[in-house]
Design a protein around this nucleic acid. Structure first.
Lengths: 337, 337
DNA sequence: AAAATTTGCGCAATCGTTTGTCCAGCTGTT
DNA sequence: AACAGCTGGACAAACGATTGCGCAAATTTT
């Protein structure tokens, strides 16, 4: 009921100056052992706890990291945030959350509010349709470092952690080739996305390795909506060459494509096999789980990005020593296959 | 590069007192229109922004809500947090996140840190095995209000929002009865859980309504692990009465049970129908989606809980006017059935 | 025109902690 | 014995904003 004890109170009771108490609590060597003990004893007795808001104010630091990401309901992000949280907590940082719901306007607003709340740094995964980055550039003026992860902007001079879809794609396509598939369709994402381009080059390289020709008409770009996926699948099914395998942009796309194909009378895993990129943890319950999945290590990405941000904050890393970490994706064969 | 402008600076430039500037910015009526305009003009010009940490400190408020929940990767919680975030943001509150990962020790630590960060209030969904609530009781001393949601403690004098599984269960069982099922198995959760007991009474009441006898041996309590589920399903399959339908504790349990039953040669949706409680958003992709699902309105729960907390903070609600909101669950028939 | 009120603004304290500077007393050196 | 060097601690400013109070000038009331 009474106000929580402050340094001043302790000082009064012991006839000391507040400064002395402060230093005593921090084990400052200039304070004699006796007084130090006295102070600490009384602090314990009164259950003294420093007022963090005062400290935040005084130190111009809040020990808070802002996280801006599209959607926690996507398994990738909820895994990533665990990596972020765990790493941040280890260094006594807390995590302020904001979901953009893939809406750029909302993303801007969140960044603004987080800036006002004086977060020490920001971890960001972009909204799908964000193409202008002024709201991030602005943070430089406030000396708030930003580390992007997974969905990173097309900019120079930024810190980021992202996975390279190329390696996983090579492995995926190679697996299919090895299994004898020769006409492999790909349902890819929007062309402007880095991740889409990486899938494309991965596809190309895997073909090259086997001295096979890459057929661009088998690589369909879609907008990742359910309609787009069905349209793409439709195109693949009516392709002059008969496809026997499909690499889908992600598990959601894969499931939509599978469903569509099944409706068209295709025998899944017989006529056509599917390989995809890991998003769903529960694919084992799926009607037609993909044959294999490219793992993108969300937890690791979150962890890495946070480590960079913390190093930036502690000064261990210079703000202009731009960290650009690429994590190779890796093919994981579905259990029991 | 130069330090951000402060009220003092504006005051100096205009030969005013800081207090005047502060009031002018807040449109205090006692400040003349002319000065008010001048101040606001200069503030705009300098791009003045109040230092929130200073305000937090001065006002002893941080406009931050702490969220403690078990697992964001569970769809229920990631939906709930959206409700929380949206509601909090509307009132200019931010959201500090902490996942307990169903570990009580971790839950305690998070609460401690959040208290130190001086969150204004807490929204909590308990870790599975939390049975002592000292770390929440302690918050009373600090006048930090707590609103529990979904996984609520067995305590008096608390605020909470939870869904009542009874109504949904009645509807679920009634649906099955209506479809002609007479021997209905239930894979329930641990007996000590309120949610389990509600499912039981729901089951009983639905039977009663049709003047049917409730058979307790059809209501199996499991520990919600995969093994527990299989064991329970096994028991149901070997029950002396031949069951034709199963009500599973949640979608995860349902899927495990379905898988197990299928392995035992049971024809899903033919020999046995499944009904469950909504957790998974993607059940349409499942091999055997449940016939119907009891919706628990996670977004709404998060929203409601946050509204209560905000009312508590604004004083609109007295701290001891304990709010205990129960949201009726509701059966949703799967699309296309 | 004197009194009362209102208007417009400044003064100073306050929130709790940290930190640079200063000072008194003690110790030890020569 | 005089001076330098430590030791242990006090003083006060500072972080940025808010707010109760006071006071003069301007305005209204009587």
């Amino acid at each position: 009921m009474p106000n929580p004890p402050t340094i001043k109170e302790i000082a009064q009771r012991l006839n000391l100056a507040p400064s002395t108490v402060s230093r005593a609590l921090h084990n400052h060597p200039r304070i004699g052992l006796k007084t130090r003990m006295q102070v600490q004893a009384l602090a314990r007795e009164l259950q003294y706890e420093p007022n963090q808001t005062a400290i935040f104010f005084q130190q111009k630091k809040t020990f808070t990291l802002g996280i801006v990401l599209p959607e926690l309901s996507e398994a990738f992000f909820s895994a990533a945030i665990s990596g972020i949280e765990d790493t941040a907590n280890k260094s006594n940082y807390m995590v302020l959350l904001g979901q953009s719901h893939d809406d750029t306007a909302r993303e801007q607003k969140i960044v603004e509010i987080m800036k006002n709340h004086r977060v020490d740094g920001l971890l960001v995964s972009l909204a799908r349709n964000t193409v202008h980055y002024a709201h991030f550039e602005m943070l430089r003026k406030y000396n708030i470092p930003v580390v992007f992860f997974d969905r990173i902007p097309d900019m120079k001079d930024i810190h980021y952690v992202a996975s390279n879809m190329e390696s996983g794609t090579i492995q995926a396509v190679s697996l299919l080739l090895q299994q004898g598939h020769r006409v492999i369709g790909m349902i890819n994402g929007p062309e402007k996305l880095i991740a889409s381009r990486q899938r494309t080059t991965g596809y190309q390289k895997a073909m090259q390795q086997q001295r096979l020709k890459y057929d661009a008409t088998l690589n369909i770009h879609s907008d990742l909506t359910k309609e787009g996926t069905c349209q793409a699948m439709q195109q693949l099914l009516s392709h002059k060459r008969k496809i026997t395998a499909v690499v889908a942009f992600n598990d959601y796309v894969s499931q939509d494509a599978v469903q569509y194909a099944a409706e068209q009378g295709v025998q899944i895993n017989k006529d056509i096999c599917f390989v995809s990129y890991a998003n769903l943890p529960l694919s084992s319950y799926m009607a037609y789980p993909p044959l294999a999945s490219v793992e993108q290590y969300p937890y690791l990405q979150g962890q890495k990005a946070t480590e960079i941000l913390l190093d930036l904050l502690s000064g261990k890393l210079a703000p202009d020593a731009y960290q650009q970490v690429v994590i190779d994706s890796k093919l994981v064969i579905a259990a029991g296959k």
